[in-house]
């Protein structure tokens, strides 16, 4: 039985033998250095005049860098654990996108529609408060 046990352990490690190599870690590191440096340069050097453009570009860089980290550092692929990690990831990403986009959309419109009345009321109240 113990022999079976060791065999099983050995087998378990063979499954994970593909967990990165020096090359993949180096490529991932270099890519993420570049993908980090460019957004910092864009913001600190004030490259674009419109902040909306800068925001869109650095968000794009962040998305690419997250994928780079997932692939080169977290070794994501569609086959690991029989595809279950990928399925969990897709589900999480879906939830996160719905939460982020939905909240921002709702709250933006709420602020947009409520703001004029709110500011008026709050300043009014503030004057009365003391």
């Amino acid at each position: 039985m113990s022999e079976h046990h060791t065999n099983h352990d050995h087998h378990g490690h063979d499954d994970h033998a593909d967990h990165g190599s020096l090359k993949s870690y180096t490529i991932g590191f270099l890519l993420s250095v570049i993908l980090t440096a460019i957004p910092f340069w864009l913001v600190m050097g004030k490259v674009f005049d419109k902040s909306g453009t800068t925001a869109a570009v650095i968000l794009g860089f962040a998305a690419v860098q997250i994928v780079v980290h997932m692939v080169y550092f977290l070794h994501m692929n569609s086959k690991s654990e029989g595809g279950w990690t990928m399925l969990a990831l897709i589900f999480t990403v879906m939830l996160v996108v719905i939460m982020l986009a939905g909240s921002m959309w709702v709250m933006y419109h709420l602020n947009h529609n409520m703001m004029p009345g709110m500011t008026h009321d709050s300043t009014h109240q503030m004057h009365e408060m003391p």
């Binding site: 913001v43 650095i58 968000l59 962040a62 860098q65 997250i66 980290h69």
Partner: peptide, 13 residues
């Protein structure tokens, strides 16, 4: 990555 992009870099814009 999300923090430095979304909080810091976009925060100073």
């Amino acid at each position: 990555i999300g923090v430095f992009t979304f909080v810091y870099l976009m925060g100073v814009l």
